[in-house]
Computed example of a mutant assay.
Amino acid sequence: MAWPTRVPTYLTYERPWMNHDLSAYLTPAADAPAASFRGKYPADFFRQPVETNLLAWHLVGGLDFLTVAEAGAARLTDGHPTSLDEWVERDGLKALKVKLRGNDAAWDFDRLQAVAAVGLPRGVELFTADFNCTVTDPAYVNAVLDRVKAALPELWSRLSYVEQPFPYELEAHRIDVHSVSDRCPLFLDESAHDWRLVRLGRELGWTGVALKTCKTQTGALLSLCWARAHGMQLMVQDLTNPMLAQLTHLLLAAHTPTIAGVETNGMQFYPAASAPEAMVHPDAYRRRHGRVGCASLRGPGFGYRLAEIDRPLPLLRAVAPG
């Protein structure tokens, strides 16, 4: 049988392209007898059908201006939004990820309240709270969540999950986090660079996993499969992906049954960096109506369509030996 030699990458994550099933790479948790990887391939855990029109999550940094008035004289005039209210209105944003301090509960609550005050009247529907790996006691997170639930019920009803409050060195900090995940879905991020750590996280009470292509494509896929087999929730998050990195990022999200869309913030931090790629894949680099798209990806590999992208590359310089 002659196999085609130019196929999309995601079609190769099954037989006959893979030499082994997932049982060669993954081991189920001891307390999950129904989980099995025998005869299973990554494609068995992908979203069906693939979703190429994705809800876009915007990152709200701890130092970001929330309103034009707050920005004041610091407001930029480069044609791009400076403050959160401008971003929400221009891009039609529906989902916000809020960076918190994790060492100042009053500030964290006030920040969530302030972001909600900007987002909710403008149509934002979903929020997440990212405590940024700085918390060491679950009681801290519980107290913030309980205060939000009591004082900000609309925000509470739209809080999708809490992200990585605790140190990312999971093996060194084996904190029981069941009390947090009993309140709100709790997602591993920095810790989840290996499926074995996802397994440990589940034992400690984590209920979800944030996947990132920067942790390697293979690592992300193995974590995806292990997590899905054990009933954990999934998200695909950004590390400010520009240029071609954004395309592999969105492809992972398109194939992953995330709880809601994909985090994508490259257009916040260097919007002009991907201009050549955006000429071919416009929906991948500009959020419209709160969404991004990757339907333009097609052909072999990751579907980059490199021949159509006018990306000038620096010339190689000859280096004299010695």
Rank of each mutant, 00 (worst) to 15 (best):
C133K: 08
E171A: 13
C133W: 06
L66G: 08
W206F: 12
Y285H: 06
Q233S: 07
A32S: 15
F65G: 05
T5A: 08
A95H: 14
L316Q: 06
H173E: 03
D194C: 05
R317F: 02
R199K: 12
P42L: 03
P28D: 04
V162K: 04
K99F: 10
V148L: 14
N265K: 04
A245P: 02
Q217Y: 03
S83L: 12
P242I: 11
Y168C: 03
A254C: 08
V177L: 04
A117G: 15
K97S: 12
L313N: 00
L126P: 13
A30S: 07
P314T: 07
P4G: 04
M267I: 11
P314C: 11
E171K: 12
L145A: 15
A32G: 11
M235K: 09
P33D: 02
F45P: 00
L112I: 07
V115Y: 05
V236M: 08
W195F: 09
T136G: 05
A43E: 04
F127Q: 14
A275P: 03
L239F: 06
E163F: 04
G123E: 13
M1P: 11
S160I: 14
V118I: 11
V60P: 04
H80W: 12
L234T: 06
W87N: 09
L251E: 07
N103V: 10
P312Y: 00
W57T: 09
T258M: 04
G92N: 15
G299W: 02
P153V: 13
T52C: 13
E70S: 01
M232V: 03
A34V: 02
F166S: 06
A254L: 09
Q246G: 14
V115W: 03
R75Y: 00
P242M: 13
H193N: 05
V135N: 03
D238V: 15
P167G: 03
D283I: 02
V115D: 06
L54Q: 15
A275Q: 08
L126M: 15
H178N: 11
G231D: 08
Y270T: 14
D21F: 00
G79R: 10
T240C: 14
T27W: 03
V68I: 15
A56S: 15
L159M: 13
Q48D: 04
Q217F: 04
Y161R: 10
F65S: 06
N19H: 11
R147T: 04
H20T: 03
D137T: 00
I259F: 12
W156M: 11
L26S: 10
H289V: 14
D194I: 07
V115N: 03
F166A: 05
L200S: 01
V98K: 06
L221T: 05
A318T: 01
A318I: 00
D104E: 08
H173Y: 09
E277Q: 07
M1E: 11
P153C: 13
G299V: 01
L155V: 15
Q237Y: 07
W87L: 10
T77N: 12
P300W: 01
A320Q: 02
E169I: 02
A34F: 02
A295E: 12
T218Q: 15
L155N: 13
E169R: 09
R90D: 09
A273Y: 01
G261I: 04
P16Y: 01
R202M: 09
Y304C: 04
H230L: 05
L26Q: 11
E70P: 01
F45D: 01
Y140G: 05
L170P: 09
P138G: 10
Q246A: 15
